[in-house]
Each structure stands twice: as structure tokens, then as C-alpha cells.
Amino acid sequence: MSTTNIPNAAAPTAWQRARIFSRRIFGDMGSLGYFLRLVVLLVFALYFGLPLLWLLLAPSKDQFAINSINPLAFGNWATVLKSWSNINLYSNGEIWLWFRNSVLYAVSSLAIGLAIGVPAGYILAVARFPGRVLLLWLTLITMLLPPSAMVLPLFLELNLVHLVNTMWAVILPASFFPFGVYLAYVYYSSNLPADLIDAARVDGCSELDLFRHVALPLAKPLLGLLAFISFNANWNNFFGPYVLLNNDKLFNLPVGLQTMIAGTSAIRPGFNTTPGLLKFQQADAAMAGLVMILPVVIVFLLSQRYVVSGAFTGSVKG
């Protein structure tokens, strides 16, 4: 675009050519600004990226190599296989039971949460009824209460109805998803024309028909974003299961990983090694960590399109 500024009478001088070239590379940031931006972004890329790269490589290094060779070097495949079999040996492959539990808990909470949350957010956006403003305020307030603050009262409440130490103790509280309701409310408020709704109502369209034929087809990016946020939060839920479950067969991965590593020398050689337990090492701990985070990475890569350009986009008004 800046090439059109060349005076067409004479050939550009060297100085002009240099300026044109620099504008093409640096845009309107200026060369100093260009490099400043690059340096800052790359420094953060190292901060966020190096630990993950290290974690990916760590299972390939035995106890000696992990502490001596270059942190970002690859060890060997034999150690990768050994770490893999070590985490599988722990309590006869209990890690896969936890993995299954994690999937079950995360997907169930996600499904229930969206099934009750999206209609609620929708109706809060399109209908006027007594108690609506109160419900919106309660949604905001409960959204601000992080789950961890509710865990102790929740424990006592679930204890009253004898649900502690069952899978429902994890699934049901996590299905309450006010953040999703609020996002759905914002999304429908800004993306669903009120005239359209009114017209459909006058034509005798029931609220249920409206939701099914107008609101749901519009909700794809919203559902993608909400599914991702909810899955991520549920998959990583630690404090809830940590307090509400004490049967290791019911643990999810985060709590399982915690117990797997406690009482071994996986983190600190020589510390607190419980005799008789499998000798867990740093490479094995890293492998277990990888098993835990890979599904989230995959879900992110699959839903990235929605996460990045999803429901947040429509709601900033200039």
C-alpha cells in the first residue's frame, strides 16, 4: 500500500527505497518499536514455552541425566518406555481409572451445565419477567465465589444428603456454571435482535420453538467457547474432589496425581520415601504430568477457533 506513494516522475532514490522497504517490514510501528515488540513477545514465549518443552523431554531422561545433561536435550527412548511402564505399574494402572473418572466427571458436568445454563442465559436475555434482575445479580455474585470457597460448606451440605464420596459430589456442584449463564446472557443480548423475537412471538411461536429454531442455531460459537471453558475447569478441578472424595477409586487425575507423587522421591530424591512403595522418579512424575495435560491441549487445539473469535467478540461496543 505504501508503494503507491512513490513519485512517478523520477526513479526513487536509494534513501526513498530504504524508507519504502522499512515501512513494508515495520509497518507503522517504527523500527525501534518493531524490535521492542518482538523482544517482549519472544521473552514471554520462552517463559511460557520452555517449561512445556522441558516437560515433554523429561520422561526420556533417567535420574542421572535429568540432573546433569542439557535441560533441553533428549535422553533416550528406553527411559521413555520405562517411565511409561512405571506410571502404569502404580496400583495396577490406577492412573487410567483416574483418567476415565476425569473424562466422566468433566464431560458430565459440561453436558449438564450447558443443558441448564444456555436456556437460562437465553431467557434472561430475551424475556421480561418478575425476578429477572434479581436472578442476574445472583448469577454475578455466585460467579464471583470461586468454587474453592464453597468447598467446605459444600462438604457439610453433601454430607447431610450422604453424597460425599460418590461421583455426584464432583459432578453436580461443577454443573452449576454461572459464568456460562452470564456469557450466554451477554451473547444473546447482543446477537439476537429483539424485533425478531417479538415478531416470532406475535406469529404464535412458542418460547420452546423460538429457542430450538432461532436461538440454538445461533449459538454455535457460544457453545464452543463454553464447552472449552467448562471442560478446562472441570478437568483441572482439584480442591473439590480433594475434599469431597476419599476413595482412591473415585479420584480424578489431579487428585490421583497428587497422591501418586506424595510419599515418593519423585520430586526430591531421598525425601520422605515410604518403604515398600514403587520407586517413583522425576521422569515418571513428568510422564504422569504429561498424561494429565495432553487432553486439555488437544481440546484447546480443536476448539481454538471458537475460543479465540467466539462469544467475546460481539460484545465490545465502540
Binding site: P51, F238, L257, G289, V296
Partner: peptide
């Protein structure tokens, strides 16, 4: 920048 978001809690 985003992927570390997968790493929480004990991991």
C-alpha cells in the same frame, strides 16, 4: 502462551 493453561493444580 495459552497452552500452559492446561497445567494447573498438582501438575
Amino acid at each position: 502462551y495459552f497452552i500452559p493453561g492446561a497445567v494447573t493444580g498438582p501438575a
